[in-house]
Design a protein around this nucleic acid. Sequence first.
DNA 1: TAGGATCTTGCAAATTACTCGCAAGAACAA
DNA 2: TTGTTCTTGCGAGTAATTTGCAAGATCCTA
Lengths: 146, 146
Amino acid sequence: MAHELHEKGLRLTPQRELVLSAVRSLGHATPEEVAEKVRSTHPGINLSTVYRNLETLENVGLVLHTHLGHGGATYHAAEELTHLHLVCSDCGAIGDAPIDAAANFVNTLSDDYGFKTDVTHFAIYGLCAKCAEKNDQKKRTDGKTK
Amino acid sequence: MAHELHEKGLRLTPQRELVLSAVRSLGHATPEEVAEKVRSTHPGINLSTVYRNLETLENVGLVLHTHLGHGGATYHAAEELTHLHLVCSDCGAIGDAPIDAAANFVNTLSDDYGFKTDVTHFAIYGLCAKCAEKNDQKKRTDGKTK
DNA sequence: TAGGATCTTGCAAATTACTCGCAAGAACAA
DNA sequence: TTGTTCTTGCGAGTAATTTGCAAGATCCTA
Ligand SMILES: [Mn+2]
Ligand SMILES: [Mn+2]
Ligand SMILES: [Zn+2]
Ligand SMILES: [Zn+2]
């Protein structure tokens, strides 16, 4: 019992270690991106092995998934999920904000509804500053033109 | 130019009208559920017609989609999206809360990051009151047992 | 109000993103 | 070592959604 995977009761395989370190080095990544990263060291790895290891690692709490877009999930190292994701519906940019920005909101939901929010599982969706400004300008121009 | 679909520049077909009214009557529904509803009146409708019309109706602002779970999207009538969705990670229950509950949060993100949040596109994810309590009890029991 | 341009539908096939069954190949405890 | 149990690669299987296309419907226009 020395390696962190052993501590979680998992066998230590090269594939599993590589998947974990790929997730850690990528920040957030889709299974496909994790596979691609792993292949740079271990070309033979199968996609289903990646999927299975992501699930296993999530079960023991070493990685987590979040939803940043309309489809699929992206994976994070568990210890690194310390920010909100602000996803722009217009340009797709992914910004960060500290979790504290949601502290009051989380407390409100807890106090009023007994609901214990995990603010990181889904992204916060909307318009980034740049796109919001762009849209405002267009609206003003359209107004004059009409 | 009388019918609301004409006002949006769309042709009025029975399928399109039925998809729209199915979305309106269902509250929130997956494409599959919309199709099933439409089939009660128009058995022959094809699933791809439902998908295409949901997209078209969303483009002109009559319907919207949100993400309530890990996969797929669910559709709403645009005028009816007036609440947050509180989705329980444990039991899957979908609760509602008024959008106002997020007003401060939305303002914070706007003031500090210039980010204009759409709080309804993704669900708010976490533990419902029931499951949160259940988990607490289990933790206390486990503590004594160990 | 017929005729034609344009849009929409149904149907079948294609795609995408996963998931599963299985036999061979590790990993680990004894 | 050796046997048990877990993990991997591989191929096939699903589920959800998308696309190409030809036939059919809607709407505009003369
Ligand atoms: Mn979406
Ligand atoms: Mn999820
Ligand atoms: Zn943007
Ligand atoms: Zn629950």
